[in-house]
Write a protein that binds this DNA or RNA. Structure first.
Lengths: 120, 120
DNA sequence: AGAGCCGGTTCCGTTGCAGTAACCGGCCAC
DNA sequence: GTGGCCGGTTACTGCAACGGAACCGGCTCT
């Protein structure tokens, strides 16, 4: 992680407070998980606490479709599938770092969890 | 506007393609509308093509609650209400510029409108 | 009296993101 | 043959965001 939040970046509640979002709820965290190299499905499930496999699959498929990452299935047993960032996906890390820096700087101004009925 | 997209930034379809979002659907556009000074309700409705007054009210209230802008009602007739950025709101323009720059650079890699069933 | 302006509000409906729970096929080890 | 691992899929549900249409009060202008 090149510019982590002080708060746990991989806590999904964090993205509720974060006014700048990359993609949908989990895409940003997935980008962070992949920046140091390819990872497989179960390796992503662990740091992304509590993500439902269905949602993770959907998100990964959408990111693949949009050219942010590649999916490589190896014909082994047990099966192995690796997800890796493309150049386009990697190019999103820059803007993400800026957003994270903003968030770190204004952490105290961010709404407290639970305060909000309408998102911002 | 300090870093506009080539595409019409105030076309809501644009935000469907944009993988980096500030706040909800309209917040980013509202920030842009206010960066050159305060504006009133109807002055916001015009550039934000087709926003329902209800949604605009909700969004402005949420942005006020989160400290991004201030709402000032003058006791005149016809009524006048002015919305102005706070320092916090203004501080979001920087990250937004970065996101817009990214989008301009990768405009051709962004998914075509209508291609998507699942968002990114 | 009637119409218009401003800044909304109310009602109702649709869409889609996200989540839970359960299940699957193929292979392996016990 | 039973259970576990991996990488999912399917069916069902909930909720928040978003939107369209209609309406409102207070005032002014004609």
């Amino acid at each position: 992680m090149s510019a982590p939040l002080n708060a746990d970046l991989f806590d999904p509640f964090c993205s509720h407070r974060m006014p700048i979002r990359v993609g949908d709820k989990w895409s940003g965290m997935i980008l962070r998980c992949l920046e140091d190299g390819p990872r497989r499905f179960t390796e992503l499930k662990v740091p992304l606490k509590g993500v439902a496999p269905k949602v993770l699959t959907e998100t990964l498929r959408a990111m693949e479709r949009d050219g942010w990452l590649t999916r490589t299935a190896y014909d082994e047993n047990p099966p192995r599938v690796e997800y890796a960032l493309t150049e386009l996906g990697r190019s999103l890390l820059g803007p993400m770092d800026v957003a994270c820096a903003w968030a770190r700087e204004h952490l105290d101004d961010l709404p407290r969890i639970g305060d909000r009925t309408h998102p911002a």
